[in-house]
């Protein structure tokens, strides 16, 4: 195992400036990243979660040498992303995905041959490697078709094939399953998981909680350009107050009832939300013996009360952290 972390970022900030007006006189500054510190070990699948505009793609582009940070330092495989770009680009892969980013009038095979040449895949191995990755993503049958005839899912697979063509040691995937139908998304996740067996470190950004939970060893939650938390799913659950969640719903609760629930042993957090006439109490339970019945006893007198228990989901964790950061 290498002693150098696969990815190491310290104090990364990125400010974008946009200009408007006839003489471009109006300058708007947007802070996309605000002091991001991150360490990812070799062989890890790391997931970066965050709402739109949180800075996920910006961070990905900085780590893949496609964008310079305004301040801070980042090293990938021990190489400085702003200075050792040429050496680093040969050792990492980037999958931006989506409908764009491919030469649509030529075949998938020709797309891959072109990028194999740009990445310097040894010429003697080029055809073998192109065939290998096509087979690996399940596109051998359509290898000689123009990519303009490809579905969104097929294009996504081709993006992944291109990303791993030169056997990168670290692969960056920016929202690899966005816009895919459930079957294609599942196949894509399977492909990503199987890369671990190849020893590839994976940095993944996604909107989908279940995807991050299913694939990632550790997860970072990025909100408003700041890393709100980085941990395993279990660690993140703990961070937001426990892995059990009890939900109670009825037509309004008294303040005294809320206070009573908050003071029950094991309760770490109670959030009250209105859904039309209905109020939902989300009660985060750290550990202990608190049961649905205990909650019910403290909310006595509510005829239509509905109480249920579930495991705290990553979505709960995510929303808690993002809301906390927003405050």
């Amino acid at each position: 195992m290498s002693s150098v972390p696969a990815i190491e970022a310290r104090g990364i900030t990125r400010v974008f400036q946009s200009r408007k007006g006839f003489f471009y006189q109006d300058v708007t500054r947007t802070e996309a990243l605000r002091g991001v510190d991150l360490t990812i070990e070799t062989g890890e699948i790391f997931g970066l979660l965050g709402p739109n505009g949180a800075g996920k793609t910006t961070l990905t582009k900085i780590l893949t040498t496609l964008l310079l940070p305004t301040s801070g330092t980042a090293r990938v495989l021990g190489l400085d992303v702003t200075k050792d770009t040429e050496r680093l680009r040969a050792r990492i892969g980037l999958v931006l995905g989506g409908e764009r980013g491919l030469y649509n009038r030529i075949s998938a095979r020709e797309n891959l041959r072109y990028f194999a040449d740009l990445y310097g895949v040894p010429l003697a191995e080029r055809e073998k490697r192109v065939n290998e990755v096509l087979e690996w993503v399940g596109l051998t049958w359509a290898a000689d078709r123009r990519t303009e005839e490809y579905s969104r899912g097929m294009k996504q697979k081709l993006h992944i094939a291109r990303g791993i063509l030169h056997r990168p040691e670290v692969l960056f995937l920016d929202e690899p399953t966005i816009g895919l139908d459930p079957k294609s998304a599942r196949e894509t996740r399977k492909l990503i998981r199987s890369l671990l067996g190849e020893g590839v470190t994976i940095f993944l950004t996604t909107h989908y909680m279940f995807e991050a939970e299913e694939l990632c060893h550790r997860i970072g939650v990025l909100s408003r350009g700041r890393l709100a938390a980085v941990d395993t799913v279990a660690g993140l659950r703990d961070l937001v107050g426990g892995d059990r969640t009890i939900e109670a719903e009825d037509y309004g609760f008294e303040d005294s009832e809320l206070a009573a629930v908050r003071h029950l042993p094991g309760v770490s957090k109670v959030v009250s939300e209105e859904y039309g006439p209905v109020t939902r109490l989300t009660i985060r339970v750290r550990t202990g013996d608190l049961t649905i019945d205990t909650v019910r006893q403290n909310l006595i007198g509510h005829g239509g009360l509905q109480v249920r228990e579930r495991r705290t989901s990553l979505e709960d964790v995510y929303l808690d952290l993002v809301e906390e950061e927003a405050r």
Binding site: M1, S2, E41, T42, G43, E44, A90, R91, Y103, R105, I106, E110, R113, Y114, D117, L118, Y119, G120, V121, P122, L123, H166, R167, E169, E198, G199, V200
Partner: peptide
Amino acid sequence: MATVSVPRAHWSGRRSTLASIRLAVLTF
């Protein structure tokens, strides 16, 4: 964790130029 041990790829300007010509011809 295992680390990848593969011969490193080396780009070449001549090969990249030829690849670019090839892509231009195919697109044409």
